[in-house]
Every structure is written in C-alpha cells, then in structure tokens.
Amino acid sequence: MRLLGSLLLCLCIPAALAAEANAPKLDVGKGGECVKDTQWMRKNHMHMLKHQRNETVRKGVRVEAEAFKACVECHASTSDNSVTAREDSFCVGCHRYAAVKIDCFECHASKRKEALAKKETK
C-alpha cells in the first residue's frame, strides 16, 4: 500500500512540476489588482463575462469594473496595446495552451481604446 502511495507520489510530483514549467508565460499588461484573485479568475472568468454580458446587453446594467472593456484596458500589452496580437498576449497565450477557441474578439475590440483613438487621428 505504502509502495503504491509513494509510486503515485513519484508520478504526480514531476507531472505537477512539468505543468508549472510548461504553463504559458503571459504578457499581463498593466495588470494590478483584479476584481478577483488570479486563481478565481483563471477558473471562473468565463462565467463572470457571460453573466455580465447578459446583464449589460439585455438589461442595461453596466458595471464598470467587470466590463469586458475593463479586462482589455488592464490586460492589453503595454507594448502593442492588444490582448490577442502575439503568442504570449494575455488572452491568446492561455487559450492556446488550454486549446479553447474564443470568439469574443470577432466583435469586441482587442485593443485599448486609446490605441484605437490614436490610430484614427494618424
């Protein structure tokens, strides 16, 4: 029994370490304090976004801090203002790693508003 236990442990530890080592290095942008802690957001951001989208679009309830725009505002790269432009961009980096396709940015802006405004005046 003990042998089995230690065998399992031996198998699990490298796997856990490997997962940590392979985890994507993300460009978190401005970062800073999020509306929730990192682990919570990793697991639940999609529920929060979906909940908030229904509230906003259908009822007109706009919560500034939980708005999609606010995510982009903080997490867009400070070098290219985007959450999707590069392999390690905040949204793309993780979603590629997790192999989950997102279609948010077919409609939503993936860049900071200021970046778009600058482009317009150019």
Binding site: K43, H51, V63, E64
Partner: peptide, 27 residues
Amino acid sequence: KTSAGAAAIAIAPGMMLYQTVRADTAA
C-alpha cells in the same frame, strides 16, 4: 465598487451565484 463582487458565492465548482451590488448603472 470596492465591495462589489464580494458577495459572489460559489455554489458548485464553476457555478456562481452573483449577488453583486450594482454600482455603476442601474437597469
């Protein structure tokens, strides 16, 4: 704003029950 979100309760993994105080615009 600072207290908003604090009232979200996890009822099951991956499922949330939001009780967030709506601070920004009312419905």
